[in-house]
Amino acid sequence: MFDYLEYIRTRNFPHIWCSGCGDGIVLKSLIRALKKLEFSKDETVMVSGIGCSSRTPGYVDLNTLHTTHGRAIAFATGVKLANPKLHVIVVTGDGDATAIGGNHYIHAARRNIDLTVLLYNNYIYGMTGGQVSPTTPRGDKASTAPYGALENSFNISGLAEAAGASFVARGDVYHATQLEKLIAKALQKKGFSVVEILSPCPTAYGRRNKMAHPVTLMEWLRDHTVSITKYEKMSEEERKGMVETGVLYDEEKPEFSSEYEALIERLKEKK
Protein backbone atom coordinates (compact mmCIF):
# COMPACT_ATOMS: atom_id res chain seq x y z
CA MET A 1 0.00 0.00 0.00
CA PHE A 2 1.16 3.50 -0.78
CA ASP A 3 2.42 5.26 2.34
CA TYR A 4 1.11 8.83 2.29
CA LEU A 5 2.21 9.37 5.86
CA GLU A 6 5.84 9.61 4.76
CA TYR A 7 4.97 13.09 3.48
CA ILE A 8 2.36 14.11 6.04
CA ARG A 9 2.76 16.07 9.26
CA THR A 10 0.18 14.09 11.18
CA ARG A 11 0.68 16.35 14.22
CA ASN A 12 -1.40 18.98 12.44
CA PHE A 13 -4.32 16.66 11.68
CA PRO A 14 -7.27 16.81 11.61
CA HIS A 15 -7.02 19.30 8.76
CA ILE A 16 -9.23 22.37 8.47
CA TRP A 17 -10.91 21.47 5.18
CA CYS A 18 -14.69 20.90 5.19
CA SER A 19 -16.16 17.51 4.45
CA GLY A 20 -16.65 17.20 0.70
CA CYS A 21 -13.76 19.56 -0.07
CA GLY A 22 -11.51 18.48 -2.93
CA ASP A 23 -8.30 19.86 -1.46
CA GLY A 24 -7.39 16.57 0.24
CA ILE A 25 -7.58 14.82 -3.15
CA VAL A 26 -5.12 17.35 -4.53
CA LEU A 27 -2.82 16.78 -1.56
CA LYS A 28 -2.81 13.03 -2.13
CA SER A 29 -2.27 13.44 -5.87
CA LEU A 30 0.67 15.74 -5.15
CA ILE A 31 2.20 13.30 -2.68
CA ARG A 32 1.95 10.44 -5.21
CA ALA A 33 3.63 12.66 -7.81
CA LEU A 34 6.42 13.66 -5.41
CA LYS A 35 7.02 10.04 -4.46
CA LYS A 36 7.10 8.93 -8.08
CA LEU A 37 9.67 11.61 -8.95
CA GLU A 38 11.68 10.88 -5.81
CA PHE A 39 12.08 14.53 -4.98
CA SER A 40 14.23 15.04 -1.90
CA LYS A 41 12.07 16.44 0.89
CA ASP A 42 14.98 18.55 2.14
CA GLU A 43 15.39 20.15 -1.26
CA THR A 44 11.74 20.88 -1.88
CA VAL A 45 10.08 24.09 -0.69
CA MET A 46 6.34 24.61 -0.66
CA VAL A 47 5.12 28.21 -0.64
CA SER A 48 1.51 29.30 -0.25
CA GLY A 49 -0.54 32.44 0.21
CA ILE A 50 -3.83 32.80 2.08
CA GLY A 51 -6.98 30.73 1.69
CA CYS A 52 -8.14 27.14 2.07
CA SER A 53 -5.70 25.71 -0.48
CA SER A 54 -2.89 27.75 1.05
CA ARG A 55 -3.22 25.78 4.27
CA THR A 56 -1.74 22.74 2.48
CA PRO A 57 1.89 23.43 3.53
CA GLY A 58 1.02 22.91 7.18
CA TYR A 59 0.26 19.27 6.42
CA VAL A 60 3.23 18.41 4.22
CA ASP A 61 6.66 17.42 5.54
CA LEU A 62 8.71 19.78 3.35
CA ASN A 63 10.33 23.18 3.88
CA THR A 64 7.09 25.13 4.08
CA LEU A 65 6.36 28.82 3.80
CA HIS A 66 2.84 30.16 4.40
CA THR A 67 2.98 33.81 3.27
CA THR A 68 0.70 36.83 2.93
CA HIS A 69 -2.43 37.01 0.75
CA GLY A 70 -1.56 36.93 -2.94
CA ARG A 71 2.21 36.98 -2.47
CA ALA A 72 3.18 33.32 -2.56
CA ILE A 73 4.64 33.59 -6.06
CA ALA A 74 6.69 36.66 -5.07
CA PHE A 75 8.16 34.89 -2.01
CA ALA A 76 8.76 31.78 -4.14
CA THR A 77 10.58 33.89 -6.72
CA GLY A 78 13.05 34.92 -3.99
CA VAL A 79 13.46 31.32 -2.84
CA LYS A 80 14.10 29.97 -6.33
CA LEU A 81 16.43 32.73 -7.47
CA ALA A 82 18.42 32.57 -4.22
CA ASN A 83 18.94 28.80 -4.56
CA PRO A 84 18.01 27.40 -8.00
CA LYS A 85 18.79 23.87 -6.82
CA LEU A 86 15.61 23.79 -4.77
CA HIS A 87 12.32 22.51 -6.18
CA VAL A 88 9.76 25.20 -5.47
CA ILE A 89 6.05 24.42 -5.41
CA VAL A 90 3.46 27.17 -5.01
CA VAL A 91 0.05 26.27 -3.66
CA THR A 92 -2.56 28.94 -4.22
CA GLY A 93 -6.18 29.59 -5.09
CA ASP A 94 -8.17 31.51 -7.68
CA GLY A 95 -8.57 34.57 -5.46
CA ASP A 96 -5.04 34.43 -4.06
CA ALA A 97 -3.29 34.03 -7.42
CA THR A 98 -5.47 35.88 -9.87
CA ALA A 99 -7.11 38.69 -7.86
CA ILE A 100 -4.87 40.07 -5.11
CA GLY A 101 -1.81 38.27 -6.51
CA GLY A 102 -2.58 38.66 -10.20
CA ASN A 103 0.44 40.83 -10.90
CA HIS A 104 2.91 38.27 -9.52
CA TYR A 105 1.13 35.47 -11.42
CA ILE A 106 1.51 37.09 -14.84
CA HIS A 107 5.03 38.40 -14.23
CA ALA A 108 6.39 35.11 -12.93
CA ALA A 109 4.93 33.56 -16.09
CA ARG A 110 6.56 36.24 -18.24
CA ARG A 111 9.90 35.70 -16.49
CA ASN A 112 9.43 31.95 -16.87
CA ILE A 113 10.99 31.24 -13.48
CA ASP A 114 11.03 27.56 -12.57
CA LEU A 115 8.10 27.34 -10.15
CA THR A 116 5.33 24.76 -10.13
CA VAL A 117 2.06 26.49 -9.34
CA LEU A 118 -0.85 24.36 -8.18
CA LEU A 119 -3.76 26.69 -8.58
CA TYR A 120 -6.85 25.32 -6.85
CA ASN A 121 -9.90 26.80 -8.52
CA ASN A 122 -13.05 26.59 -6.40
CA TYR A 123 -14.81 29.56 -8.05
CA ILE A 124 -15.10 31.34 -4.72
CA TYR A 125 -13.33 32.77 -1.67
CA GLY A 126 -13.91 29.72 0.49
CA MET A 127 -12.11 30.55 3.70
CA THR A 128 -13.74 33.94 4.13
CA GLY A 129 -17.23 32.59 3.52
CA GLY A 130 -17.98 32.36 -0.18
CA GLN A 131 -17.46 35.79 -1.68
CA VAL A 132 -17.39 36.20 -5.47
CA SER A 133 -13.96 35.57 -7.06
CA PRO A 134 -12.41 36.27 -10.47
CA THR A 135 -13.38 32.75 -11.56
CA THR A 136 -16.97 32.68 -10.32
CA PRO A 137 -18.96 31.80 -13.48
CA ARG A 138 -21.16 34.64 -14.68
CA GLY A 139 -24.60 34.35 -13.14
CA ASP A 140 -23.53 32.07 -10.26
CA LYS A 141 -24.29 33.21 -6.74
CA ALA A 142 -21.84 34.15 -4.04
CA SER A 143 -22.14 35.80 -0.62
CA THR A 144 -21.18 39.13 -2.22
CA ALA A 145 -23.04 38.39 -5.45
CA PRO A 146 -26.45 37.47 -4.01
CA TYR A 147 -28.19 38.17 -7.34
CA GLY A 148 -25.60 36.29 -9.37
CA ALA A 149 -22.17 37.39 -10.60
CA LEU A 150 -22.41 40.22 -13.13
CA GLU A 151 -18.73 40.21 -14.05
CA ASN A 152 -17.01 38.01 -16.57
CA SER A 153 -14.74 35.31 -15.17
CA PHE A 154 -11.08 34.67 -15.85
CA ASN A 155 -9.75 31.76 -17.85
CA ILE A 156 -6.78 31.39 -15.52
CA SER A 157 -5.00 28.74 -17.57
CA GLY A 158 -5.30 30.88 -20.68
CA LEU A 159 -4.00 33.83 -18.67
CA ALA A 160 -0.82 31.93 -17.69
CA GLU A 161 -0.24 30.80 -21.26
CA ALA A 162 -0.73 34.30 -22.65
CA ALA A 163 1.62 35.75 -20.05
CA GLY A 164 4.46 33.40 -21.05
CA ALA A 165 4.30 30.27 -18.89
CA SER A 166 6.07 27.29 -20.42
CA PHE A 167 3.65 24.63 -19.15
CA VAL A 168 -0.08 24.93 -18.50
CA ALA A 169 -2.43 22.10 -17.58
CA ARG A 170 -5.90 21.76 -16.14
CA GLY A 171 -7.11 18.88 -14.01
CA ASP A 172 -9.89 18.21 -11.56
CA VAL A 173 -10.43 16.30 -8.34
CA TYR A 174 -12.83 13.78 -9.89
CA HIS A 175 -10.05 12.54 -12.17
CA ALA A 176 -7.42 12.01 -9.47
CA THR A 177 -5.14 9.75 -11.49
CA GLN A 178 -4.99 12.22 -14.35
CA LEU A 179 -4.36 14.97 -11.82
CA GLU A 180 -1.37 13.12 -10.35
CA LYS A 181 0.12 12.76 -13.84
CA LEU A 182 -0.40 16.43 -14.65
CA ILE A 183 1.22 17.49 -11.38
CA ALA A 184 4.18 15.18 -12.05
CA LYS A 185 4.65 16.68 -15.52
CA ALA A 186 4.49 20.19 -14.10
CA LEU A 187 7.02 19.33 -11.41
CA GLN A 188 9.43 18.00 -14.02
CA LYS A 189 9.10 21.01 -16.30
CA LYS A 190 11.99 23.47 -16.15
CA GLY A 191 10.10 26.75 -16.27
CA PHE A 192 6.98 28.41 -14.95
CA SER A 193 4.32 25.72 -14.90
CA VAL A 194 0.73 25.95 -13.79
CA VAL A 195 -1.76 23.22 -13.02
CA GLU A 196 -5.22 24.68 -12.66
CA ILE A 197 -7.14 22.26 -10.46
CA LEU A 198 -10.91 22.35 -10.35
CA SER A 199 -11.70 21.64 -6.72
CA PRO A 200 -15.17 23.02 -6.12
CA CYS A 201 -16.35 24.02 -2.66
CA PRO A 202 -19.64 22.44 -1.55
CA THR A 203 -19.85 24.58 1.60
CA ALA A 204 -19.47 28.05 0.17
CA TYR A 205 -20.14 27.60 -3.55
CA GLY A 206 -22.27 24.49 -3.98
CA ARG A 207 -24.87 25.43 -1.39
CA ARG A 208 -25.58 28.74 -3.11
CA ASN A 209 -25.70 27.20 -6.58
CA LYS A 210 -28.00 24.17 -6.23
CA MET A 211 -25.09 21.76 -5.82
CA ALA A 212 -24.97 21.51 -2.03
CA HIS A 213 -24.15 17.81 -1.93
CA PRO A 214 -20.45 17.04 -2.49
CA VAL A 215 -21.43 14.15 -4.73
CA THR A 216 -23.39 16.53 -6.96
CA LEU A 217 -20.25 18.61 -7.44
CA MET A 218 -18.20 15.51 -8.17
CA GLU A 219 -20.75 14.43 -10.75
CA TRP A 220 -20.67 17.88 -12.24
CA LEU A 221 -16.92 17.53 -12.70
CA ARG A 222 -17.37 14.06 -14.23
CA ASP A 223 -19.97 15.30 -16.69
CA HIS A 224 -18.52 18.68 -17.62
CA THR A 225 -14.82 17.95 -18.09
CA VAL A 226 -13.38 16.45 -21.23
CA SER A 227 -9.82 15.73 -22.27
CA ILE A 228 -8.25 18.31 -24.54
CA THR A 229 -7.78 15.76 -27.32
CA LYS A 230 -11.50 14.95 -27.35
CA TYR A 231 -12.41 18.60 -26.91
CA GLU A 232 -10.51 19.57 -30.02
CA LYS A 233 -12.54 17.15 -32.09
CA MET A 234 -15.86 18.42 -30.73
CA SER A 235 -18.19 20.78 -32.55
CA GLU A 236 -18.89 24.28 -31.28
CA GLU A 237 -22.29 23.03 -30.09
CA GLU A 238 -20.84 20.04 -28.22
CA ARG A 239 -18.26 22.22 -26.48
CA LYS A 240 -20.90 24.37 -24.79
CA GLY A 241 -20.67 24.04 -20.98
CA MET A 242 -17.66 21.72 -21.22
CA VAL A 243 -14.24 22.36 -19.67
CA GLU A 244 -11.18 20.93 -21.35
CA THR A 245 -8.57 19.21 -19.18
CA GLY A 246 -5.09 17.80 -19.73
CA VAL A 247 -1.90 19.49 -20.92
CA LEU A 248 -3.09 22.70 -22.56
CA TYR A 249 0.30 24.17 -23.40
CA ASP A 250 3.91 22.91 -23.30
CA GLU A 251 6.86 24.79 -24.79
CA GLU A 252 10.60 25.04 -24.15
CA LYS A 253 11.65 28.58 -23.23
CA PRO A 254 14.67 30.13 -21.46
CA GLU A 255 14.22 29.82 -17.70
CA PHE A 256 15.02 32.83 -15.54
CA SER A 257 16.98 31.38 -12.59
CA SER A 258 19.27 29.35 -14.86
CA GLU A 259 19.72 32.35 -17.17
CA TYR A 260 20.90 34.27 -14.12
CA GLU A 261 23.33 31.50 -13.14
CA ALA A 262 24.65 31.56 -16.71
CA LEU A 263 25.15 35.33 -16.46
CA ILE A 264 27.21 34.86 -13.28
CA GLU A 265 29.37 32.29 -15.08
CA ARG A 266 29.80 34.59 -18.10
CA LEU A 267 30.91 37.44 -15.86
CA LYS A 268 33.40 35.16 -14.10
CA GLU A 269 35.00 34.22 -17.43
CA LYS A 270 35.32 37.89 -18.40
CA LYS A 271 37.34 38.58 -15.25
Binding site: V45, T67, T68, T77, G78, K80, L81, N103, Y260
Partner: peptide
Protein backbone atom coordinates in the same frame (compact mmCIF):
# COMPACT_ATOMS: atom_id res chain seq x y z
CA UNK B 1 21.30 37.93 -7.32
CA UNK B 2 19.42 41.04 -8.34
CA UNK B 3 15.82 41.15 -9.47
CA UNK B 4 13.61 44.02 -10.46
CA UNK B 5 10.19 42.82 -9.40
CA UNK B 6 6.80 43.76 -10.82
CA UNK B 7 5.93 45.92 -7.82
CA UNK B 8 7.00 47.05 -4.35
CA UNK B 9 4.95 44.38 -2.59
CA UNK B 10 6.47 41.59 -4.64
CA UNK B 11 10.00 42.84 -4.04
CA UNK B 12 9.48 42.68 -0.27
CA UNK B 13 8.15 39.14 -0.65
CA UNK B 14 11.12 38.04 -2.75
CA UNK B 15 13.53 39.51 -0.17
CA UNK B 16 11.95 37.44 2.60
CA UNK B 17 11.98 34.29 0.46
CA UNK B 18 15.66 34.73 -0.40
CA UNK B 19 16.59 35.41 3.22
CA UNK B 20 15.02 32.13 4.33
CA UNK B 21 17.19 30.38 1.78
CA UNK B 22 20.21 31.93 3.48
CA UNK B 23 21.13 34.98 1.43
CA UNK B 24 21.43 38.32 3.21
CA UNK B 25 18.74 40.32 1.46
Amino acid sequence: KFIQMEDEIGSMGAVIGASLVGLKS
